[in-house]
Amino acid sequence: MAKITLNDEAQEVTLPLSLTELIKANSATPEMVSAQLNGEFVAREQYDAIAIREGDEVDILYFMGGGQSS
C-alpha cells in the first residue's frame, strides 16, 4: 500500500499503479480529464507510462462546459 494525495484528499493505493489506472479507479475516463502529478501537467499520452509512487500528489481535473444556452 502507498499513501498518495488525490484532489487534496489522502488515499491509499496498491502499487504498481499507472496514472491511467488511478484515473479509472476514481470513475473517470482518461480521455476526459486533465491530470497534474506533483504540480506538473502530464500529457495524456503519458498516463499509461506514469507509475504512481508513495507520496505523490495527483490532481484530476474535469472538463466542464455548460453555461450559455444548453
Partner: peptide
C-alpha cells in the same frame, strides 16, 4: 490545463 477539446459528445 486542458490541452484540446474533448471528443465530441464525450462530455
Amino acid at each position: 490545463v486542458f490541452h484540446s477539446p474533448p471528443p465530441p459528445n464525450a462530455v
